[in-house]
Design a protein around this nucleic acid. Structure first.
Lengths: 220, 220, 220, 220
DNA sequence: TATGAATGAGAGTTCATTCAT
DNA sequence: TATGAATGAACTCTCATTCAT
């Protein structure tokens, strides 16, 4: 459980801090336990707040999840963008993967959130919320897509965003395939279960490497 | 709602039939509505049985899901295996994809079940159930992996099963990314949302095509 | 808290009995505490059942209230009807009031429910429920109205139902004006508060007596 | 939403003005939506004040309701009294009803508050509040009762206040019976529901007319 | 074997009231 | 005096699972 810093969030900075505190609490829980196993009561307790207080900052559980996803995704995109922006010119697939991998380091929460995003977006969400979220995402990925196209010259126009979409698909797939409950973890200790013991980062980047190799081969 | 044939299932054949009736009812529902929105009451009603009766055949909702997934996966593997077995010799990627695509036709349930499998495996499942399920799966995929390696000669030993795993990852990712609730569907009607309108089969096989191209290119 | 008689209500008779048990529990509580201060949890506890069980028999709290009101109203109408039916011919106002008063004896619950009916009908009720309830009520009161017209010959056609409506109005008004919480009861102990100490039955029938006298005088 | 005039109410006049602002805001809301559907947050917003500020002037929601009822009742009684005071001598029932009806014009809020008064008095109210309210009411109605007795000479001593009580009863009853939520309104659109479509003013004064006719007939 | 009534913990959410600022 | 953030008990309702019949 987190300690609350101020008793009352009076000014906007403090309110933003409280909002962040709730998101932080939620991030820990979502990362550990997935969306469906986390209750508003848990989020409140984890933030050191009362249940009602959480509702002052977020209308629904889904809104928390979406805000968190937005935050995490944008932070990653910012990071990734800046890594691509500093490049002098085109790079090889290997270097691109290396840059991507470094931008993924320490972003477990983002990856888990992304992997659950589509299941959550199905639920208890208004048209406006969904629209805003998606529109915002499109704007951001559009820009990053362009940077990718500059970095990987064999990509044709519009394929940058396709690479991002493929990445998203692989994250969803691999996170879910490597995420294990204690029971499953125990099952996988058996040597014969080796083929099911996935290392998220390794598999993710290996398969992305193949995809890029495929894209390059196809382009030629 | 399905009709029940016999009042009481006395012998093993009748019991097996009842089991199948439940799975059939559950398949329709899981395919339409996903795991979390389907209740045991719905499954029971859809099978023409009482709730308690369902629990005579399956200890938990997860067990139903697992049994169903096993069934669907095996049916698909049977189909796919036989398509690969009849091959005279090695084939091109394109032909392989074509075979795969044909084996996927009409298997919506399998794809949706597979996409939720890992989320369900996290929950309410015993060590034994998980172990059996996984062990069974390993045995099956091992065999199919070998067939794939024969079909695609550029694959080295053990890469056949990797192809299957990659396929699984892509199915999980793309199914979830293309599945939309009515609200989201409405949002996606906007022209600007085009980049989020995914065609499951198209995307799935295009990305698999790239992966195979990548594998081939890497092998050479 | 009431004792439950059977563990499980299997056949329709037992189910009806359980339904009645819930209504009985609810009646006690509604009579004591009014609609808004009674929770589903209280109703369940008072019936010796679990919360969820109550929801097997009634979809909402309002449905309980409506079922109860229907039951109580019909029981009273049955009673009142039969008292009017046995009359040989027209009667005086005084006798009519006497008959009415006797039919009201021991029907505290009915009077309290009736007095809250309109406030409850405002809430959480579907068009169908409201329609059925009202339609049923119209049918019943129509019949009773006719009996009243026979008993009180100075009434013109259609005025029988008006008498019932006036009665309803007086019940709503007087019940609410005579119903007191402990605090108010204490206040009314002061001698100077005498004008606010209402005796429900006395006031109700005195004012109805005046109304009938007025109707008769107007008719002549 | 109302505009606030001064930032801080320092002297008593300003405080009284603030109190009035709250009551004004509350009146609109209670009249539109009834007691139970109005929240303190709504009252505060409607008065252009903060929630906490409202609590500086009124300890509970019930206290607001009571203060408002007092105000509205007194305003009406003032009006009604002055209409009776200017009379040269005794009048007929019809004229009395006419005077009453004119004093009721534009007093929707008073009628709705009165109709909910007894339900609210049951709740969350202290002995002192209840005592003051009732004592004040007795003093006022005593006077008005006397005026009524002068206007209607067939009334014996003490019956003036009875007429007021009967009026109160009818207001409670008819307001609640004519007040309908949108759903109920829809139900009542059916032609067969005509007997439940009440016109508040019409019914109220017709039944009061009967009561007075009854009183007169009884007196003779 | 089959039933489905019963359970009860737990979900998300609201709101009158308090109190730190 | 004024604020509005914070509270937390209370609400209605759901549903996987149990178990008396």
């Amino acid at each position: 459980m987190n300690k609350i810093v101020v008793k009352r969030a009076i000014n906007d900075r403090q309110k933003e801090a409280r909002r962040e505190a709730i998101l932080k609490g939620a991030r820990d829980l979502f990362t550990e336990a997935g969306f469906f196993d986390v209750s508003m009561a848990m989020i409140a307790k984890h933030s050191g707040l009362a249940k009602g207080t959480v509702y002052l900052y977020f209308k629904t559980k889904e809104e928390i999840f979406l805000a968190l996803s937005t935050e995490e995704l944008e932070a990653w995109l910012d990071d990734f963008d800046s890594r691509l922006t500093v490049l002098a010119g085109p790079i090889e697939n290997a270097e691109f993967l290396d840059i991507l991998q470094r931008s993924f380091e320490g972003r477990t929460a983002m990856q888990r959130l992304l992997s659950l995003l589509h299941l959550v977006l199905e639920k208890n969400i208004t048209y406006e919320e969904a629209f805003c979220f998606k529109q915002n995402l499109i704007r951001r990925t559009d820009f990053t897509g362009k940077l990718i196209e500059k970095a990987l010259p064999y990509l044709s126009c519009g394929q940058g965003i396709s690479v991002l979409t493929l990445l998203q698909c692989l994250v969803v797939g691999w996170v879910q395939m490597s995420d294990h409950s204690p029971v499953i973890e125990k099952v996988l200790e058996h040597p014969q279960m080796a083929p099911f013991k996935f290392d998220l980062q390794k598999n993710l980047f290996e398969s992305l490497s193949l995809l890029l190799a495929g894209l390059k081969a196809t382009a030629e």
